[in-house]
Simulated scan of single mutants.
Amino acid sequence: MPETTMAATLGGVSLDAGDHLCVFYRGQEERDRLLLPFLAEGLRAGHAVLYLGREGEKDTIAARLGGRGNLEIGEPEDGHLRDGRYSPEDLFERLDDWVARTLSSGAAPFGRTAGDMSWASRLMSPGLVPELVGEEIAVTRWLRQYPLVVLCLYDLDLFGGELIIPMVKAHPKVWMAGTLVENPYYLRSTESVVRR
């Protein structure tokens, strides 16, 4: 039985319950160097772990983590997308269901979730950016109800300034180039983040 702790780290940096990080990385190799230890640490600690990954990587990530513990892995259609269309309602349904089965039920004392946002690169449009900003701000409010840490992973090789700058403003903390920053640019309202 793993020793249960109520703590998480990313790249050796301590995180607190309620932390919602925008994690910028370049390429899948760098993502995996950050992501896999974060998820594995949670499994060893007895945490509930949810990863919403890229299309087609569910089995690969499960195998790399040994498929053990309180681990759930989904792909874009299991969270952000419904029939290939962006659906934040489906994401929150999935998150609420996961929390009910794990944290609220007492099956785990602490949780961590990570979402690879690469799917959004295929759907980029001026209308998508304010929707994503609104979702990220809602995630910050939602997760503060629970003993939980959330990482949103954005590949700098896939996204330009039209998404990166609003995503910085939509997250209370930002991880870039091995550094975690309390975000002085964080704004709590979509009106403040994206001009319409």
Rank of each mutant, 00 (worst) to 15 (best):
residue 41 E to C: 14
residue 65 L to E: 06
residue 82 R to L: 14
residue 118 S to Y: 01
residue 79 G to Y: 09
residue 86 Y to I: 06
residue 94 R to E: 00
residue 26 R to T: 10
residue 124 M to S: 02
residue 28 Q to D: 12
residue 58 K to H: 08
residue 69 G to H: 11
residue 94 R to M: 08
residue 109 P to K: 06
residue 136 E to D: 12
residue 91 L to N: 03
residue 35 L to A: 00
residue 39 L to Q: 09
residue 47 H to Q: 09
residue 97 D to Y: 14
residue 58 K to A: 10
residue 24 F to G: 03
residue 60 T to W: 11
residue 48 A to C: 15
residue 37 P to R: 09
residue 40 A to Y: 02
residue 43 L to G: 04
residue 58 K to T: 04
residue 124 M to K: 03
residue 22 C to W: 00
residue 72 E to S: 14
residue 22 C to N: 02
residue 129 V to D: 12
residue 35 L to M: 00
residue 24 F to V: 05
residue 125 S to M: 07
residue 38 F to A: 04
residue 47 H to A: 08
residue 89 E to H: 11
residue 54 R to M: 04
residue 66 G to K: 11
residue 114 A to F: 08
residue 133 V to A: 12
residue 77 E to R: 09
residue 100 A to D: 14
residue 54 R to F: 06
residue 68 R to P: 15
residue 62 A to F: 14
residue 71 L to F: 02
residue 85 R to A: 13
residue 52 L to M: 00
residue 98 W to G: 00
residue 100 A to P: 12
residue 139 V to D: 01
residue 46 G to Y: 09
residue 106 G to E: 01
residue 69 G to R: 11
residue 86 Y to R: 00
residue 138 A to V: 04
residue 81 L to A: 10
residue 65 L to M: 10
residue 72 E to H: 14
residue 104 S to G: 15
residue 114 A to H: 02
residue 62 A to G: 13
residue 99 V to P: 03
residue 89 E to G: 12
residue 101 R to L: 11
residue 90 D to Y: 12
residue 65 L to P: 06
residue 59 D to P: 05
residue 131 E to S: 12
residue 97 D to I: 11
residue 67 G to F: 13
residue 26 R to G: 07
residue 26 R to M: 06
residue 63 A to Q: 12
residue 49 V to K: 05
residue 70 N to D: 13
residue 26 R to E: 11
residue 133 V to P: 03
residue 64 R to M: 15
residue 49 V to W: 07
residue 57 E to C: 09
residue 51 Y to K: 13
residue 41 E to S: 15
residue 98 W to T: 01
residue 106 G to M: 06
residue 42 G to I: 02
residue 124 M to F: 06
residue 90 D to F: 13
residue 50 L to V: 11
residue 113 T to P: 13
residue 113 T to Y: 12
residue 85 R to N: 12
residue 32 D to I: 01
residue 110 F to V: 01
residue 98 W to E: 03
residue 116 D to V: 07
residue 114 A to K: 02
residue 53 G to K: 01
residue 94 R to V: 05
residue 31 R to K: 12
residue 116 D to I: 04
residue 22 C to F: 07
residue 106 G to S: 05
residue 133 V to G: 04
residue 121 S to C: 10
residue 35 L to S: 03
